[in-house]
């Protein structure tokens, strides 16, 4: 059971939300829950490279944006089937990660952080300059994506359950991956690259593989996000969004995967909750982040691990 308690507890919470007798508020609560799960999916994938692999990507909103624009591109072409949408989103995100990863992995430390940011900025500006998809104004989605004609991403329970399925699947894939020799190599490379090399691990291949997987999962979150908001805009890929994903991972505790989910929940709830309470919510949220960085070693998941 070790290491399964926190994720299982969170799964129970997510599964229980649609059953709560909230009456009129239930739609809003489910929307919020779905939003948390969408960002949690992206955050978990970032944690795979950032936490486990030690690859601090400051551009993880880029594959998210590519997933969202896959929805826009096919919507413009009159296609709303989930299979073509997913195929395009995954293809774009995979190619993106392969190309940019191969260059970015030549650098280390601060330079890696900055070059991943630079690539994400390219995607941001590129998507904002396509007049067919609304340029910087964004693209209002005509039809939400359907799976075999079923409205799996329409408001309420269908979207909520789809987001839950995607999150659970992404979490399990990342977790299973970390248990394979590939995942062990990734962690080994973070802990001691020289030793890992000496054992015959090819750093570039392992790290590039992890970046591709993370990018693919993030693009799924992008497909969901586009459907949730019925709107696709370059703003999903602004650098602040990449920073926010990083904040989710760090607040939750890098390297634990479930911490990323927790972090996504805290960030979305804080933004939303404080936003209802005051328009000056960053005045509270900002210092919380500073204090968390100063005091919370290992993030929320670290606190959970040290409890009792």
């Amino acid at each position: 059971m070790k290491g399964w308690r926190l994720p299982l507890a969170m799964l129970l919470v997510f599964a229980a939300v649609p059953l709560l007798p909230l009456g009129r508020d239930s739609g809003y609560v489910m929307l919020l829950g779905a939003r948390i799960m969408v960002f949690a999916t992206a955050a978990v994938s970032l944690d795979l490279i950032l936490g486990a692999g030690g690859l601090v990507s400051f551009g993880h909103a880029a594959p998210l944006l590519l997933g969202a624009y896959a929805v826009a591109a096919l919507d413009k072409a009159g296609v709303d089937g989930a299979l073509p949408v997913l195929a395009l989103a995954l293809a774009l995100a995979g190619i993106y990660a392969l190309l940019t990863g191969a260059v970015a992995l030549r650098t280390r430390g601060v330079n890696f952080i900055m070059i991943t940011l630079a690539f994400a900025q390219m995607v941001y500006f590129a998507t904002g300059s396509i007049p067919d998809y609304g340029g910087t104004d964004g693209y209002p989605l005509g039809e939400r994506t359907r799976l075999f004609g079923l409205k799996v991403l329409h408001d309420g329970l269908p979207f909520y359950l789809s987001a839950l399925v995607v999150l659970v699947a992404s979490y399990l894939v990342c977790r299973a991956l970390l248990a394979t020799p590939f995942g062990r190599s990734l962690v080994a490379l973070r802990q001691n690259e020289q030793r890992a090399r000496a054992m015959g691990i090819d750093p570039l291949r392992v790290r590039l593989g992890a970046m591709v997987v993370a990018s693919l999962i993030a693009s799924l979150a992008g497909v969901l996000l586009a459907n949730e908001s019925d709107f696709i805009s370059p703003a999903y890929g602004a650098w602040q969004r990449s920073a926010e994903l990083m904040v989710m991972v760090l607040l939750g505790g890098a390297g634990s995967l479930s911490g990323a989910v927790l972090g996504a929940g805290v960030v979305v709830l804080l933004e939303e909750g404080l936003g209802r309470f005051t328009q000056h919510w960053p005045l509270i949220f900002g210092p919380v982040l500073v204090l968390a960085a100063l005091g919370l070693r290992g993030g929320l998941a670290g606190m959970w691990a040290r409890r009792g």
Binding site: V56, A243, V247, L250, A254, L283, G286, L289, V290, A293
Partner: peptide, 20 residues
Amino acid sequence: RGHLDQVLATFGLILTIGEL
């Protein structure tokens, strides 16, 4: 401290000072 703590804290400062 690690780069990650620094990113978290200084991003928090951006939000705080921007709102101030």
